[in-house]
């Protein structure tokens, strides 16, 4: 582990989040510690209501919190372009801007005004997500999968330190989801991005992540393990079965009602 002596990109220390929305409001996140190294692809699993979305919303800067969240040693206090969030909903692009403008607008705000440069960046990232030539369409003319691709392109174009993804593929059909998973791995490799990816799908967690954590209902990290299965990960890969079983059992344990856990 050559990276062991390098400071992690993201450090979460003793993080507590409580909305204080009632006299007995519980801690959504309960003294949680986490560190993510540069180039990590961390997937976070957990039952509904375990606070996984709250965790990345805190990292993104959308929530106040107690404890510490440090990106390259600097405390997170508000949203910023070093942490780009990609949401589950298809409606995260601005409908009043074309695909190309959706990608270019954040760049413009952040000081890139040269038109050729903007066009070059937009084209490069549209190509990266397989949407070359679609730049002049409006979001409402795209399918759900295409919208998520644009959201990824938009996030990458800003060259953030961390990409935060909150179940971005959960509302897609299985075929499209598989395709986007494969593409996301390729893009991550190519751009050497650091990704934190929330999912409720064990297979997705294993296919994408080189680290997988599983959160408990109490807002703590229950499982934190490396995923050493070589990419591309399929259910036939060696070691997949054991990891799947371990995670599945941990999820079942958390799910007190014993309802279905998606595989």
């Amino acid at each position: 582990m050559t990276e062991a002596n390098k400071a992690p990109l993201l450090e979460v220390k003793d993080l507590v989040k409580n909305y204080h929305d009632g006299p007995n409001a519980r801690n959504i996140l309960d003294h949680l510690d986490l560190s993510v190294n540069e180039g990590d692809f961390l997937t976070i699993l957990g039952p509904s209501g375990c606070g996984k979305t709250t965790l990345i919303r805190c990292i993104a800067g959308f929530e106040d919190y107690e404890g510490e969240i440090l990106v390259e040693g600097k405390a997170v206090s508000q949203p910023g372009i070093d942490r780009m969030m990609i949401f589950q909903t298809f409606e995260q692009l601005f409908p009043w801007k074309t695909v190309k403008k959706n990608i270019q607008y954040p760049l413009k705000i952040n000081g890139i005004t040269d038109k050729e440069e903007l066009d070059r960046i937009a084209e490069k990232h549209l190509e990266l997500v397989g949407l070359a030539g679609k730049g002049d369409l409006y979001p409402h003319q795209l399918s759900g999968g295409m919208k998520q691709r644009v959201a990824i392109a938009k996030g990458l174009a800003l060259n953030p330190k961390i990409i935060l993804m909150d179940e971005p593929f959960a509302a897609l059909d299985a075929m499209t989801r598989n395709k986007l998973q494969a593409e996301l791995i390729k893009i991550k490799e190519k751009e050497n991005a650091t990704v934190i990816f929330i999912t409720h799908n064990i297979q997705e967690a294993l296919v994408l992540g080189n680290r997988v954590i599983l959160m408990s209902k109490n807002g703590e990290i229950k499982v934190n393990m490396e995923n050493k299965i070589p990419k591309p990960v399929t259910p036939a890969s060696e070691g997949y079965g054991e990891m799947w079983k371990l995670l599945n059992e941990a999820l079942w344990e958390e799910d007190s009602e014993g309802g279905a856990v998606s595989e």
């Binding site: 508000q78 949203p79 372009i81 409606e91 995260q92 607008y105 954040p106 705000i109 952040n110 800003l158």
Partner: peptide, 18 residues
Amino acid sequence: IPRMYIESGMNIGLRGLK
């Protein structure tokens, strides 16, 4: 306005009047 648009805007660095 959907909260999503506002959060997207804040994420890309827009504040206040912008």
